[in-house]
Design a protein around this nucleic acid. Structure first.
Lengths: 154, 154
DNA sequence: TATTGTTATACTCTATAACTATA
DNA sequence: TATAGTTATAGAGTATAACAATA
């Protein structure tokens, strides 16, 4: 009856971290999509809008960097948000290569309402966990995502 | 200085669960790919091989279901593993519609060595966490992945 | 020369529909 | 009729290369 090795290393496929992370992410995306549907935006678009709320509006490349996505991907995301009237692009007067991206008034309104809905989605996603476990999950993921990978120099 | 709302709901994009799960999963996939490269298989292929180690060899569809992937996706994965000589398919005598999938001897050997490498990858991935936090991360993800979604009836 | 935004292109992962052989 | 495996196809999501405008 050796179900799992005692050291936390899983031989059962459904206990492998790769499996767990992938399926947790799929579930989160699913809950997010369902919750955000009434506002006409995706989870990725909400994340982009969230990045535009700092004190000074970022360039497209800065926004892309903060989300860890490619600048070519950002173009398409902003195209969609601009078509919906939620963000606007203006050439930066100080560096005319750059586009400064800002939320429109409609964008700020949508962000407020969709942001609240997204927090509700996180609550639903975390429902099976105690508040302490939920907080530690967030902290652990944060620590892992921001770790510097061994074997990567640069 | 209200950096984060006190209830654990993140307004900072890099604290959102969607962001954290996506990037954690990317990092895990990256570590897995690097660690498994010497064995000539991907993380997904290792997961498939792991599923074939139960007492009775599953059909393709059963294997797909255990991994939460589509049966049409399983076809391609098994094609690749079969080309590498790591698995074999035989029609099930009891139900000739089914393919029974088994590891070859080479497959069992590769699984042993690549499985150990993958556990090492998990250790590297979990390095920033205490052993307790790592174990709780696994348990929390497991609880979330196996929760029944509210609002989904069936 | 280097950088920003853009476009075109390709590659991976996945899902859907339709086919075949079996039940 | 329903199911298992297969194939073809299409849709996301992403990355790379190349281009124009600007630094």
């Amino acid at each position: 009856m050796t179900k799992y090795p005692s050291k936390g290393l899983a031989s059962e496929p459904s206990r492998r971290l790769g499996y767990l992370l992938k399926h947790a992410q799929l579930k989160m995306a699913e809950v997010n999509a369902r919750t955000l549907a009434p506002y006409g935006i995706s989870g990725r678009e909400l994340a982009v809008m969230l990045v535009l709320t700092g004190q000074k509006p970022p360039s497209q490349q800065q926004a892309a960097h903060r989300l860890g996505i490619d600048r070519t991907t950002m173009v398409g995301l902003l195209d969609a948000l601009e078509d919906k009237g939620l963000v606007s692009r203006h050439t930066d007067a100080d560096d005319r290569r750059r586009n400064v991206v800002e939320l429109t008034d409609a964008g700020q309104d949508t962000l407020r309402r969709a942001g609240a809905a997204s927090e509700e989605a996180e609550r639903e996603f975390l429902a099976p966990l105690s508040p302490q476990a939920a907080e530690q999950l967030r902290n652990s993921l944060h620590a892992i995502v921001h770790q510097r990978l061994a074997g990567t120099d640069g």
